[in-house]
Design a protein around this nucleic acid. Structure first.
Length: 367
DNA sequence: AACACGGGGAT
DNA sequence: ATCCCAGTGTT
């Protein structure tokens, strides 16, 4: 191992190691690359869509969304001119909906600033909303073979193990080391294929729970393997305590229509529609009923008569485990608050046209 | 550095 | 039930 810069904890590999690593990795990838939809084209737009969908989202989950999205929005131009509600509708169920809104905004920026052509310039790409260091590197290398490194979940694990890096890979110094490693191993040519090979190996062989070192083409080059500490790397993420929370959603019916509200910017499900939904604190049914009525009135100025609980769903978000009771309610009188854009009485059959979050979609089948 | 952001796959 | 996933942007 070569001498390393003073800022790093560990030495980066020297030239001979890097050469052997690349050769073995690429040979392995030639035999083991999965046939993924976004690997069938080098259109930067398609690569971009796949990379954004794949942010914090598993390959298996993205699968069905990718082709459907591209059927409806086949080009940057098509996406740029689309209605945001339509974009969100195609994203429904994928989560992290900010990604869809930012990609829509970025498409408009590409039309405005770059004539509708995806830019090749690193700074221009990084300037687009929703494209950070990883996604920029991935698109530029995969679409254009630019000499850009990548660092994401799979390669963090792989590179950490290759180096036997015992620190926290999410920390500032950990990130610096691993980005330097990602750059150090990068070849001059075919950087896109190489970066995908890194991710593939990290995903399929250098797995989180049970790494398959017996099937790994670079096991002999792996410092964690040599020390038999591959199971201890990377160190697990600190988990914030889950908080229990109780919410109520209300299906307010009036003359064959149901009341929907649109979530404001910045928070959960921004831009999506939902049934009126509130956090409640009451323990017993009588108080809960009172609280429910007050909440609906407070947010919609609508008087309701709540019926029985239709069903209870449980779901978790980042910090909360939520129990959601869904009530049917009869409209009595009043007018919903808010702009007409944000509050609507919809025919149940029209709910299909509106982007809802996943629990909202489940409840919509009761409406 | 710590958080918020979603939903589902894997064990 | 728990951890994690082809991260980004804000505080």
């Amino acid at each position: 191992m070569a001498k390393h810069p003073a800022t790093f904890d560990l030495p980066l590999p020297e030239a001979g190691w890097r050469r052997r690593f690349r050769r073995r990795l690429l040979a392995w990838f030639g035999d083991n690359a999965r046939d993924l939809a976004w690997r069938r084209s080098r259109d930067p737009y398609r690569i971009w869509v796949s990379e954004v969908m794949l942010q914090q989202t598993q390959v298996a989950t993205v699968g069905p969304y990718f082709e459907r999205f591209l059927e409806v929005f086949p080009t940057i131009d098509a996406l740029a001119w689309a209605d945001e509600q339509d974009v969100l509708r195609r994203w429904e169920g994928l989560g992290y909906y900010r990604r869809a809104r930012q990609m829509h905004e970025a498409a408009r920026a590409i039309v405005r600033r770059h004539g509708g052509v995806f830019p090749r310039d690193r700074e221009a790409v990084r300037a687009l909303p929703g494209i950070g260091r990883y996604t920029a590197g991935a698109i530029l290398s995969i679409a254009f073979d630019a000499a850009e490194p990548i660092l994401e979940a799979n390669t963090i694990r792989l590179l950490s193990r290759l180096l036997a890096f015992r620190g926290d890979p999410r920390s500032k110094p950990g990130q610096e080391l691993l980005w330097a490693m990602a750059e150090a191993v990068l070849p001059r040519r075919e950087t896109g294929r190489f970066n995908q090979a890194l991710m593939e190996l990290g995903s399929e062989v250098c797995r989180n729970r049970s790494p398959r070192c017996d099937a790994c083409p670079v096991a002999a080059l792996c410092e964690a393997r040599r020390q038999r500490i591959e199971h201890q790397i990377p160190v697990p993420k600190a988990k914030p305590a889950m908080e229990q929370r109780h919410e109520v959603a209300v299906i307010v019916r009036r003359r064959g229509r149901v009341l929907l509200v649109r979530q404001g910017d910045g928070g959960r499900w921004a831009g999506l529609w939902d049934f009126p939904r509130f956090q409640v604190h009451a323990e017993n049914p009588a108080n809960l009923r009172r609280e429910l009525i007050d909440n609906v009135r407070g947010q919609t100025s609508v008087l309701i008569e709540p019926g029985e609980c239709l069903r209870t769903l449980k779901h978790g978000v980042t910090r909360f485990r939520i129990t959601l009771d869904c009530y049917a309610a009869r409209y009595v009188s009043g007018t919903p608050n808010g702009r007409a854009d944000d509050v609507k009485w919809l025919r149940p059959s029209d709910l299909a046209e509106y982007p809802l979050n996943t629990t909202g979609r489940k409840l919509s089948r009761l409406a």
